[in-house]
Computed example of a mutant assay.
Amino acid sequence: MTQHRSSLIQCPNYTEAHNLTRVSEFHLMTLSEDPDLQPVLFGLFLSLYLVTVLGNLLIILIISSDSHLHTPMYFFLSNLSFSDICFISTTVPKMFMDIHSQSRVISYGGCLMQMSLFIFFICLDDMLLTVMAYDRFVAICHPLRYHSIMNHHLCGFFIFVSFLFSFWISQLQNLIILNFDYFKNTEITNFFCHPSQLLNLSCSDTISKNVVMYFVGAISGFLPLSGIFFSYYKIVSSILRIPSSEGKYKAFSTCGSHLSVVCLFYGTAIGDYLASAASDSPGNSTVASLMYTVFTPLLNPFIYSLRNKDMKSALWRIQNRTK
């Protein structure tokens, strides 16, 4: 076991000294202390992980192998599937190792790396959903100019900016955490290094923590969400001007899968953020994090495959070619 370096210092706005630890490792929370449940949990989450990875890989394979899907919308969707694979891989494999080895320890460097990757792929998902909303806006509001606007150069630029923005946000959060040298304890009440919980453990005043959380949340969440709202405001306004109900349904149906994924992503994200930042119950925080980190990337392939006629037609064509 790695030794901790401890020192007695006084936190800002505290009237008495606290034993604070300059840590070299953290201890994650287990999903269950019952030994009989460990194999069940291991098998359950391994199955969910494999289904998520294979489902998103299938979407990437279908899009890359069918020329009918070589369009901006499906180009962004393949990148979203890749991001979802990486997103779930930042937290769940470590949970497998903890269940198998009965160990809850993660090094300080490993914790920062996991947190950084977690934030990076959250922001990447966020940015890709925003770009996909803009793509739907152009397709519905400017259909005659769609191919000239959404050209290969603009699509590549959007992907580059999404990766660059996500990297900047993740490194910004890392730099903020690195400025907190001391922590009140090493117990993280979640199955991975959640950014808001690391902030809560740090030896800094409440105002500083809130400023950091709201600032990063506003940049990484509010700005992209504003872009999505603006795009759908324009989309709905354009659809309402269509005279026939059949035309309205056809136009709105092209947004159905994307809108479902947006609601799922932001619904679970807000729940996870509120539970981790405000809830005193570790169980509530863990359930919210599981919904966000496991079930969101799991359900995305099913939403796009079951609700999308183009994807089902492409899968049918691939099956016929294989036969």
Rank of each mutant, 00 (worst) to 15 (best):
Gln3Ala: 04
Leu8Glu: 14
Ile9Met: 08
Gln10Arg: 14
Cys11Ile: 09
Phe26Ala: 03
Asp34Thr: 13
Asp34Pro: 03
Gly43Ser: 06
Leu44Val: 15
Leu44Trp: 09
Ser47Ala: 14
Ser47Leu: 15
Thr52Met: 01
Thr52Ser: 11
Leu54Cys: 01
Leu54Thr: 05
Leu54His: 00
Ser65Gly: 00
Asp66Trp: 01
His68Trp: 11
His68Cys: 13
His68Gly: 07
His68Glu: 15
His68Lys: 13
Met73Cys: 09
Phe76Glu: 06
Ser89Val: 09
Thr91Asp: 07
Lys94Val: 13
Lys94Arg: 15
Met97Cys: 06
Asp98Gln: 14
His100Phe: 08
Ser101Gly: 00
Gln102Thr: 12
Arg104Gly: 03
Arg104Leu: 14
Val105Gly: 02
Tyr108Cys: 03
Gly109Leu: 03
Gly110Thr: 08
Leu112Lys: 07
Leu117Asp: 05
Phe118Thr: 11
Phe118Tyr: 12
Asp126Cys: 12
Met127Ala: 09
Val131Trp: 12
Met132Ile: 01
His142Asp: 10
His147Ser: 14
Ser148Gln: 10
Met150Lys: 04
Asn151Arg: 00
Phe157Lys: 14
Phe163Lys: 10
Ser170Arg: 07
Leu172Tyr: 15
Asn174Glu: 02
Ile177Tyr: 04
Asn179His: 10
Asp181Trp: 01
Asn185Ser: 15
Asn185Trp: 02
Thr186His: 10
Glu187Ser: 09
Thr189Asn: 10
Phe191Asp: 09
Phe192His: 13
Cys193Gln: 06
Leu198Arg: 11
Asn200Ala: 14
Ile207Ser: 12
Met213Asp: 06
Ile219Pro: 03
Gly221Thr: 14
Pro224Asp: 06
Ser226His: 08
Tyr233Gln: 10
Tyr233Glu: 09
Val236Lys: 11
Val236Leu: 11
Leu240Gly: 02
Pro243Ala: 11
Lys248Ser: 07
Tyr249Ile: 15
Tyr249Cys: 13
Ser253Val: 01
Thr254Lys: 12
Thr254Leu: 14
Ser260Tyr: 10
Val261Cys: 06
Tyr266Asn: 12
Tyr266Thr: 11
Gly267Ala: 08
Ile270Asp: 01
Leu274Lys: 04
Ala275Tyr: 00
Ser279Asp: 06
Pro282Ser: 10
Pro282Tyr: 03
Ser285Ile: 02
Thr286Trp: 01
Thr286His: 02
Ala288Lys: 05
Tyr292Arg: 04
Tyr292Ala: 12
Phe295Gln: 05
Thr296Met: 11
Asn300Leu: 06
Pro301Trp: 03
Phe302Arg: 02
Ile303Met: 01
Ile303Tyr: 00
Leu306Asn: 08
Lys309Arg: 11
Met311Asn: 07
Ser313Trp: 06
Ser313Ala: 15
Ser313Met: 11
Ala314Leu: 03
Ala314Thr: 05
Leu315Glu: 12
Thr322Arg: 06
Thr322Lys: 10
Lys323Val: 07
